[in-house]
C-alpha cells in the first residue's frame, strides 16, 4: 500500500489577523474518496485552497506525494491535481471543447498545438462526464449543472491523480448528483484516482466517502470513517442540530435525520428582552 497522497502537519492559515485554520493534522490516503464536512465558515474552502497552493499556509507543512507542496511548480502540480471550484462563470463565449482542452494547458508547449493524444484525453474526459454532446455549445449558454460537468471534464483532462472538488453538486438535481458521485467512484476504482471533496450534504458524504474530516471553527473536530465521524453527538456539537442516525435502505450506509433543538424557552426570553428594551 502506497503512503498517503497528502500529509498535513500543523497547518494554520489566517486572513490578516483573523485565524481561519488552526493547527490541522491529517492525511489523505492514496485512492478512495475522502470528504470534508463542516458548517459554513468552518474553513472548508480555505483548506482546499491551501491544499492546491492557491493560498500559502501561515504555519505548518503540506506534503504531496512525498514532496513539500511549497517546492512544487504550479505547472507540475496542475498535472497531478485537478480542482473543480464551487462556482464558475465567464462572460467570454468559448466552446465547451475549448474549455475542456484548456485542461491540457500544463502539458502543452508554447507554440505547439494540441496533439492527437491531447484530443483523445479530452474526448475521453467529455464522454465520461456526459458532456461530449455539448462539445460545440458555448459555455455562456450552459445551465448550472452542465457547466459543473464541463468543469469536471476539464479537471479530468489534466489527468490528475488527485481530484479536489468544492461542493461539486450544489447546482445539480438529484439524478445529476448521483451520476457525478457514481462517476467519481468509478474513476477511483478504474484509474486509482484519489478524490477529496467538500460536502454540504452530510448524507451524500456518508454514502460515498470512505473517510471524513469534520471541521469546526477552523479545527478538526473529528476524522475517520463516516460511521464514526457522523455520530449523533458529533453532528449536534458541530452543526447545532439534533440528529438521529439511521440506515439508508439501498446499501445500508448511515443516513442522518435532523431536527432543530427545542428553543422555545430561549426565544421567549429573547422576545421579552426585546420588548423590555423598547420601553
Amino acid at each position: 500500500m502506497a503512503g498517503p497522497i497528502l500529509a498535513v502537519e500543523g497547518l494554520s492559515f489566517s486572513f490578516g489577523k483573523r485565524p481561519v485554520l488552526a493547527d490541522l493534522n491529517f492525511t489523505v490516503p492514496t485512492g478512495g474518496f475522502t470528504g470534508i464536512v463542516g458548517p459554513n465558515g468552518s474553513g472548508k474552502t480555505t483548506l482546499l485552497k491551501c491544499l492546491n497552493k492557491a493560498l500559502p499556509p501561515t504555519r505548518g507543512r503540506i506534503t504531496f506525494m512525498g514532496q513539500d507542496l511549497a517546492g512544487i511548480k504550479l505547472r507540475a502540480l496542475a498535472r497531478q491535481i485537478g480542482v473543480v471550484p464551487q462556482q464558475w462563470e465567464t462572460p467570454f463565449a468559448f466552446t465547451v471543447r475549448e474549455v475542456v482542452m484548456m485542461g491540457r494547458f500544463p502539458y502543452l508547449r508554447r507554440w505547439a498545438g494540441a496533439r492527437q493524444e491531447d484530443r483523445a484525453v479530452v474526448e475521453e474526459a467529455m464522454r465520461a462526464t456526459n458532456t461530449w454532446m455539448l462539445a460545440d455549445r458555448l459555455v455562456t449558454e450552459l445551465s448550472g449543472g452542465e457547466r459543473q460537468r464541463v468543469l469536471i471534464a476539464q479537471a479530468l483532462a489534466q489527468t490528475p491523480c488527485l481530484l479536489m472538488l468544492d461542493e461539486p453538486t450544489s447546482y445539480l438535481d438529484v439524478n445529476q448528483t448521483l451520476e457525478i458521485c457514481t462517476l467519481l467512484t468509478n474513476l477511483i476504482r478504474t484509474k486509482g484516482l484519489t478524490v477529496l471533496a467538500v460536502f454540504h450534504d452530510l448524507n451524500l458524504a456518508a454514502r460515498y466517502c470512505q473517510r471524513l474530516i469534520m471541521l469546526k471553527e477552523g479545527r478538526i473536530y473529528a476524522q475517520g470513517a463516516p460511521e464514526a465521524v457522523l455520530s449523533s453527538p458529533n453532528v449536534t456539537a458541530v452543526f447545532g442540530v439534533e440528529t438521529v442516525v439511521g440506515a439508508e435502505p439501498f446499501n445500508g450506509r448511515p443516513h442522518l435525520y435532523f431536527s432543530l433543538p427545542q428553543r422555545k424557552e430561549r426565544s421567549t426570553n429573547r422576545r421579552q428582552e426585546r420588548s423590555s428594551g423598547a420601553e
Binding site: 492546491n52 497552493k53 492557491a54 504550479l74 505547472r75 507540475a76 502540480l77 496542475a78 498535472r79 491535481i81 485537478g82 480542482v83 471550484p85 464558475w88 484548456m102 485542461g103 494547458f105 500544463p106 476539464q154 479537471a155 489534466q158
Partner: peptide, 8 residues
C-alpha cells in the same frame, strides 16, 4: 482562480 488551478 481557475487559471491558477490549471498551472498558471
Amino acid at each position: 482562480e481557475k487559471a491558477h488551478q490549471l498551472g498558471l
